[in-house]
Write a protein that binds this DNA or RNA. Structure first.
Lengths: 210, 210
DNA sequence: CAGAAAAGAGAGCAGTGCTCTTGACGAGCG
DNA sequence: CGCTCGTCAAGAGCACTGCTCTCTTTTCTG
């Protein structure tokens, strides 16, 4: 029952986006009274939460599936990048739900952070396996962010301070690139999206020292 | 009249976000009938467009104001980054309107692209003035994206192919970092937001060859 | 088989964007 | 001067939303 609701919700989401999501419309499509649906999802936010968790999980699985154990780190990084982008291109509204502006009034509950971490962990593993020693002269991180670096190192053990901060920067660049493409910032500018993205991510691999 | 409406709309936007924006609420606050407001903004999308254009303009002005002519490129880049971030932190909902997920059903009209370009131009000028020759061995861009690079070079004349693509990547990293911070992706992870951002952008300056 | 618990239906409230019709007001023109 | 015409605003109304409350039906359990 819950599954059927989220499935229909996902099709609505794919067709019209998050704001076009309507509990009443879902109930109508199920031949149900509009009030009955509140028994399964008391509030619209609860439905959104379910969709978000499912989305993070699907993305995390795609990210994991992109990894082949023996591959060199640079290739694994590239595969991860394309997995994220492919997911976003295939299900743009779902991606927007995860990484776009938060739905106003909606506060993500704690249940979402574990699934959200899953994709990040794939990245962390790549860096951790590679133990990169980036080639050049990055400025040393200021003392203030030491604890933050330490916390992030939890997902990429054994990695140097410099490599940790570079990983975070590359990580934001990845999602920045995907978001820009999806949210129309590249309209009338970049036509060969996939190739451009691929090149940018290769460049970042060097930046990462992979 | 139009100005008064947009001003009130901006305060509502700042308080409750884009989805909390209600034409009726604005009319109510103005002591106006709800229907009268449609004379000035026939549709809610028209109001949004006005807010978006204003937002891009304000951000563009802040970006321009951050630049001091004599400064070295790396410092100008850093100043630009902080201008963008400061804007986003001060007016998160407005930033979300510009760079977050597009409001569903809303199609940005052509009037928005010129103001949107303004901030980008500041970045282009920095790169163009610096004419960086990035230190290391980036892979050569594939032939397919040649025309795209050519188009982007319009905002940073005289810059090498490699530097152009790096600039785009750094540009997406900048907005990726700001969006991650604003949209909650750094919650429970990074505490010293400003310092971390600053360090990342310095690192990107090296990546850019500044 | 009877009673309790769960599931659904229906009406209703307050709110939304938007349209249509109606009424006031003032400027331009014969 | 009087008359028309365009602008501005108001009001009612439509279709829709999330959500609550009450009431009935179904289903499971002891």
């Amino acid at each position: 029952m819950v599954r059927e609701i989220t499935d229909i919700a996902r099709t609505h989401l794919a067709r019209e986006g998050a704001a076009g999501l309507s509990l009443r419309a879902i109930a109508r499509e199920m031949g149900m009274a509009s009030s009955a649906i509140h028994r399964y999802f008391p509030t619209k936010d609860d439905l959104l939460t379910a969709l978000i968790i499912d989305g993070y999980t699907a993305l995390g699985e795609a990210a994991e599936a992109s990894q082949r154990a023996g591959d060199p780190p640079a290739e694994r990084w590239l595969a991860l990048c394309h997995a994220v982008r492919d997911f976003a291109v295939a299900r743009p509204h779902e991606y927007a739900l995860l990484y776009g502006s938060p739905v106003p009034g909606y506060q993500a509950p704690a249940d979402t952070v574990a699934p959200a971490l899953r994709t990040t962990l794939v990245c962390g593993r790549i860096i951790s396996d590679a133990r990169p020693t980036p080639p050049d002269l990055a400025p040393p991180p200021p003392a203030a962010i030491g604890p933050d670096i330490e916390a992030i190192r939890a997902v990429m053990p054994g990695v140097s301070d410099d490599a940790v901060t570079r990983a975070v920067t590359a990580w934001t660049a990845l999602f920045g690139a995907v978001s820009f493409e999806l949210f129309g910032q590249f309209d009338n500018t970049i036509t060969h999206r996939r190739e451009f993205f691929d090149h940018g991510m290769r460049s970042l691999a060097r930046y990462l020292g992979l």
